[in-house]
């Protein structure tokens, strides 16, 4: 189907002899938000990291745009400009200012014009309400501010697809809202996203599709509405009832 941005087919991932992701299959449609849910240790982060080559996978294939990726794929580096990723621990470069963090990719990887990249960076900083921190260092920012900068850093590369790996898990509760609002804004603008989260209300509100992962297997795949209103499997029902939301 032409509307698919990403297709994962029979993906398998091993750690040594242990298989940790088993026969994973799913698609991500352009402009949609897919939320990956599941208990801790179910393989959510490992799966999302396989999608931009931070983890190797050992079986199956990934199709992203017109690229076919099979185990041992070596050309991740140019592809990563199209797949932005934001991590749980922000991971801004502490030795660079906010603006230098943001411009490193556009200037050094994409070799873009400095004024053009700077204008875009400033526009995005304005949208996340952090314009005045352009020349601050990461250590001068709060967790929530750092995470919003990390999102801007990924967006300035103009990716076609965004991966969010538990981006609010390290934040104080009052910081969470600001970060989630930024992601909601992206969803409203039809950015294609795959989101790993434990924020159930947020997931419920944002998900077009939910993948429920347990022990390295997708045990349920359904629309966001259906998953939260009428989960199909007992495991998903138990999971939802154990979550406080």
């Amino acid at each position: 189907m032409a509307n698919e941005l990403l297709t994962v087919t029979h993906l398998v991932k091993n750690y040594g002899k242990k298989e940790v992701l088993h026969d994973i299959n799913f698609t991500v449609e352009k402009g949609s938000v897919t939320v990956l849910l599941g208990p801790s240790g179910s393989g959510k982060s490992t799966l999302i990291r396989c999608l931009n080559g931070l983890e190797e996978f050992h079986g199956g294939q990934i199709n992203f745009e017109d690229q076919t990726i099979t185990p041992g794929f070596k050309k991740w580096q140019p592809l990563r400009q199209h797949i932005g990723m934001v991590f749980q621990s922000y991971d801004l470069f502490p030795n660079r200012t906010v603006i230098d963090n943001i411009l490193l990719g556009p200037l050094k990887v994409q070799k873009r014009d400095k004024n053009e990249a700077l204008a875009q960076a400033r526009q995005l900083l304005k949208e996340v309400q952090l314009s005045e921190y352009e020349n601050a260092y990461p250590r001068q920012l709060s967790g929530g501010q750092k995470q919003r900068i990390a999102i801007v850093r990924a967006l300035t590369l103009n990716p076609d697809f965004m991966l969010f790996d538990e981006v609010t898990a390290s934040l104080d509760p009052e910081m969470v809202r600001g970060v989630l609002e930024v992601i909601e804004g992206l969803a409203a603008r039809k950015m294609t996203m795959l989101v790993v989260t434990h924020e159930m209300n947020f997931a419920k509100q944002i998900a077009d599709k939910v993948l429920f992962l347990e022990n390295g297997k997708i045990v349920e795949e359904s629309s966001g509405h259906q998953f939260f209103e009428q989960p199909q499997t007992q495991r998903a029902q138990d999971f939802l009832s154990s979550m406080d939301f």
Partner: peptide, 17 residues
């Protein structure tokens, strides 16, 4: 921190960069 390596890779830096 290995997270810094991940962050660098994620914005498309090559190994030398």
């Amino acid at each position: 921190s290995p997270h810094q390596v991940d962050a660098g890779k994620a914005i498309g830096l090559n190994r030398l960069q």
